[in-house]
Design a protein around this nucleic acid. Structure first.
Lengths: 208, 208
DNA sequence: GCTCCAAGTTAACGGTGTTAACATTGGCAT
DNA sequence: ATGCCAATGTTAACACCGTTAACTTGGAGC
């Protein structure tokens, strides 16, 4: 269908773009269907031909966000296990810091309840799997402990997600731009927090 | 001022309680000043005698949430360093899981921007300091590496916060009630993720 | 007893998401 | 070529929302 004065022809994409722009500047709470429609030059109910409701529009933004995150994680060099792990962590946090409002939307359980948008859940899983694959590679290379994969990925994901969220929201005193923090944290996880003197104690699991 | 038909006398507290009830059941997005006023049996603008705006009411809920979290963290036994650290982590995640909507409000940077409510920021710091003190104790006992305190607390907080958020939102496959996950994760951080064979490599910092 | 002020009231403004009912029009089958 | 149909717009309206202005009530202190 061509674009005429009546039939817009590109409403879906333009609404998406406009919503993303508002999201970046003011956060998801500021996204208003009526305002977007007015900006595009269309009546508000017209949006309902392309999005079931406001939440569906937000879900689509989050989906494209997960795709972008996945791409950023996929671009990390996977040659050396340790460098790959640290690189993934840095890339993850860098994404969150470069798109704070989008990241908050993607992981804001309150606005996009899990299970309500299957494509969104899948997009999240796709991104998550990049992280998981990196860890599995590290294990196959013998670099990481042979602990259960689910446990290790949960740990790594928790760490980078928590760090992202806390720095984004300004809760960490050292929130600034320094990637030194992210790198230090990742190293700490890899090498452990226990002092070497104690490190031979309590290793009663997963060590051959 | 006594409570008559006109002068309510307990409006502030009742509004707080009612808002907390709605928050627990349906999340902060469902908190409506008009609905709360109607429930209490008062006109909507009456609330503005006690709260500057909706956000101030939410901030007060979050403040009491941080106080509750702090109390829960303070109740952890601090006798043995390792047990204290794991206990703090478990208590933190347990709080988030028992009050998911409150936890989301406390850390939802979008609805309560940092800096807008000083008392809220202070409440968050008070809770954070319990975690920091536990780590400092672990260092003084020689159990933890003498890495910079800020780095270690940022790591620990990121880990427990990320785990809380991910389990709350159902992103972790193993999200269920098992504290086994939280304990495994905490142990992994303490002992490190690198296989023992590699553990003597790359330790070029913080080891005396 | 009078006054003042804290704490309520109603009315109203501008905004929101969403639905119902109607209008336009491009593409496809005849 | 024509006529229908489904997709895609429109306007009007409903039920909310947060918030402010202007007014009223009534208890506490001089």
């Amino acid at each position: 269908m061509a674009r005429t004065a009546y039939h817009h022809g590109d409403l879906h994409q333009q609404a998406h773009d406009q919503a993303l722009a508002v999201l970046r500047l003011e956060g998801d709470g500021a996204i208003s269907l009526r305002a977007i429609a007015k900006q595009i030059g269309v009546s508000a109910p017209a949006l309902y031909r392309h999005y079931a409701d406001r939440e569906s529009l937000l879900a689509e933004l989050a989906i494209s966000g997960f795709a972008a995150l996945r791409q950023q994680l996929l671009s990390v060099d996977q040659h050396a296990p340790r460098a790959a792990l640290i690189g993934i962590g840095l890339a993850y946090v860098a994404f969150a810091q470069s798109e704070p409002n989008l990241y908050r939307l993607m992981f804001g359980g309150r606005v996009l309840p899990k299970g309500a948008h299957p494509r969104l859940d899948q997009a999240g899983l796709d991104a998550f799997n990049v992280l998981q694959d990196t860890i599995a590679r590290g294990q196959r290379a013998g670099y990481l402990k042979p602990a259960p994969l689910a446990l290790m990925t949960a740990t790594a994901w928790s760490l980078v997600h928590g760090l992202s969220q806390l720095t984004i929201d300004g809760h960490l005193p050292n929130a600034g731009a320094e990637p030194q923090l992210a790198e230090g944290i990742t190293s700490l996880l890899l090498e452990g927090a226990i002092a070497p003197t104690h490190n031979h104690i309590d290793n009663n699991e997963d060590t051959p």
